[in-house]
Write a protein that binds this DNA or RNA. Structure first.
Length: 484
DNA sequence: CCCCCCCC
């Protein structure tokens, strides 16, 4: 792709006789930068607008009226438009009670307006590879119908469906047609944007998670892959791609990734999700991308970037079921059929050190307590074997997991086991030091019956450091709710 | 003729 001019220098689009206003759903407030994409087919130096003469010289619709997109309506039969593809979806299949098929859609723009175009089945085969994002085409003979505003946020009363006689022909001189514009929001700035805002973002893909399959609420299976994008603001944000885009993404070489029309979510703080209407561009040929590449390669890669998105499930105040310990009692948590889960910020008052360590089977993934045979051998009933050695495991009364207890005490079970055997004072000190420390505890609560005696048992699943910003945010929201 | 924008 060739870029006419960096819009950053100009504060807007230059080289276009008219200005195309960003579509409403993007709602940019103060664009900090803008990039133009897709002028590769613009070679002519003589802009032409709706001149029938010009149209007849190079378009198949010689007898058609060249009209602006804004004037398209279902009540005229002969027309040709000349427009640039802003956005193109991938091919999607559907299968419902009314039948099945495939489709793709794209959005076009000219100086007068914009429109959504959908192609089904045979028209998918005919036009999918021809239609390229950023390029200009003559389009004629298609069906116009009232736009379904529920799914089409473009500013036009109608949308277009291609049919067997529809014509799409590349236009060699479309430089007068507005370029596709990106208003990239710096990643640090995402923190101040509203949830559900549709924004354009560009960053270096520092890491890309593996692709995974998830099942949606409506029982559809879909692939997803989360990228972690950073920019020169030193902030990082998680951006999730879906479907084929997720499957095909190759992030091993830290490409620059631009997403036009991503949705800002408040999951885990702030994160982004690509929509069907988003355009994901890997290493796009735009100045922003070149700048980011240089910045990253010349040292940006070493920056300890701070993510706006919580990477772990914990720490974030958004999805945590925060409870106080008295809530657990007052709300009779754990009395249901299934266990309840809650998180609390709590301070460790005391932990028993006498029964905290046990000698476990050294087999990988066994962890069963071994029986000391007092002959130098240790027997594991589960493995039905005797070992000359064992491994220490930690078991605090709150915790089912060795790793959780290790996090709480700040030492590995192995270290503590050695310490107990060699330096009791140091061993005691570890427990002393852990007392009165405050953490986020993620807990499971369940009423358990043992020997005819029922009691609510709280098990700590995970211990995490307190994220004071998130925790304060949660407390403020509680105060806010109390004053409602 | 789709119309799902998902999951933690």
């Amino acid at each position: 792709m060739e870029i006419l001019q960096s819009a950053e220098k100009t504060g807007g689009l230059i080289g276009n006789p008219t200005t195309y206003k960003e579509r409403s759903k993007s709602s940019p407030e103060e664009p900090t930068s803008a990039a133009q994409l897709g002028n590769s087919s613009d070679n002519s130096s003589s802009p032409s607008k709706f001149s029938p003469t010009k149209a007849s010289s190079s378009s198949p619709g010689a007898s058609s009226n060249m009209i602006p997109i804004a004037q398209l309506n279902p009540y005229q039969s002969k027309w040709t438009i000349r427009a640039r593809v802003m956005n193109k979806s991938s091919i999607r299949n559907w299968n419902n009670s009314r039948g099945e098929g495939k489709l793709f859609s794209f959005e076009i723009v000219d100086e007068s307006g914009e429109m959504k175009i959908t192609a089904f089945n045979k028209e998918v085969d005919k036009f999918f590879s021809l239609v390229e994002q950023g390029k200009v085409y003559y389009i004629s003979k298609a069906t116009l119908k009232v736009a379904n505003k529920q799914y089409n946020t473009l500013k036009h009363d109608y949308e277009m469906t291609l049919h067997a006689h529809s014509s799409i022909v590349p236009c060699a001189d479309g430089q007068d047609i507005p370029a596709v514009q990106c208003d990239f929001v710096p990643i640090a700035e995402l923190e101040n944007r509203d949830k559900d805002a549709i924004i354009d973002v560009i960053g270096v893909c520092k890491t890309a998670e593996d692709v995974s399959r998830i099942t949606t609420k409506s029982s559809r299976e879909v692939s997803k892959r989360t990228l972690h994008l950073i920019d020169t603001t030193g902030k990082m944000v998680a951006a999730t791609l879906w479907g084929e885009e997720a499957e095909k993404f190759e992030g091993s070489e830290q490409p620059v990734v631009a997403i036009k029309g991503a949705r800002l979510s408040d999951f885990g703080g702030r994160s982004l999700s690509a929509l069907f209407s988003s355009t994901v561009m890997v290493n796009p040929d735009i100045p922003e991308a070149f700048r980011l590449r240089a910045w990253y390669d010349q040292g940006g890669y070493a920056l300890a970037s701070q993510s706006l998105s919580e990477t772990k499930s914990g720490g974030s105040g958004m999805r945590m079921n925060w409870k106080t310990l008295s809530d657990v009692k007052n709300e009779n948590m754990g009395h249901g059929e299934k266990a309840d889960y809650f998180s609390c910020v709590a301070t460790l008052l005391y932990s028993r050190k006498d029964t905290c360590l046990y000698q476990a089977c050294p087999s990988v993934d066994c962890n069963k307590k071994v029986l000391d045979q007092h002959n130098g051998w240790f027997r594991c009933e589960k493995c039905n074997r005797e070992f000359p050695n064992f491994k220490y495991r930690l078991l605090l009364s709150v915790s089912p997991r060795n790793e959780t207890a290790e996090a709480l005490l700040g030492h590995s079970a192995e270290t503590l086991g050695q310490l107990r055997d060699t330096d009791e004072a140091a061993f005691d000190a570890v427990f002393q030091k852990a007392n009165f420390t405050t953490h986020i505890f993620k807990n499971r609560v369940k009423l358990e019956t043992y020997n005819d005696e029922s009691r609510v048992k709280v098990t700590v699943m995970e211990v995490q450091p307190v994220n004071h910003r998130e925790y304060s945010r949660m407390l403020l929201s509680n105060i806010h709710n109390l004053t409602q």
